[in-house]
Amino acid sequence: MNQLWVTLRPHLPFMLDGFLLTVFACTLAIIGAVLIGALMASLRTSGNRIVRGVAFAYSDVFRNTPFIVQLFFFFYGLPEIGIYIGAFETGVIALSIIGGAFVSDVIRSGILAVDQGVIEAAKVSGLSRWTIFTKIVLPIALRTSVRPMGSVLINMVLTSSILSTITINELTGTAKIVASTTFKPFEVYLVLLVLYASLTYALSLLINTVHRRLNRAMDTGGAA
């Protein structure tokens, strides 16, 4: 153990930087993914065929191709169409977009699971379609979606390790560098494991808290 400490100590600040970068990237990407996901889920349940079709195409393409291919596509493709942004921004955008595709799936099932009777009750009260969607359907759907969304978001954190392949020195990136300079891959990956595990654990705690806060009013299974 002492040996491990002596070997890794000089590299820990560097890895901590990487850890913080991972936290930062994931936070931005998760916010982006939830916003995109809610919007896309709304479009995917829209009454308009064409809007629905476009939203479905989005989620299909991004769910059904590997993240790494998408990431490279953005990384090399955006400059080609005249958009010059840094690697970090590219990574966060790509992560938000793929996360949004999966989140939209979750929220969409949440929307479809909203009790038709409740929607009818809102209709007969004379609420407009916009009010029904924004004040009744979406709030209920978001509440029931929190838990299933959790596994998507945790997957996003794990997926963020792939950002290291486009020169972003987040946690995995720094770990790779440290592992190759110290020739102690096992020890480095042990540290990595602890850091990722604590990150995903913290995220799942956060999700549980949000779930409890939002659902104290509601039966766990949504409307029966």
């Binding site: 009790d115 009777g117 409740v118 009818e120 009750a121 809102a122 209709k123 007969v124 009260s125 004379g126 609420l127 407009s128 009744i136 709030p139 209920i140 509440r143 009013a217 509601m218 039966d219 949504g222 409307a223």
Partner: peptide, 20 residues
Amino acid sequence: CQRRAEIGMLFQSFNLFSHM
């Protein structure tokens, strides 16, 4: 919507807004 507001309806399954 305005016209429906004049006609109240009650359901078998109550259909209260569960998040409110």
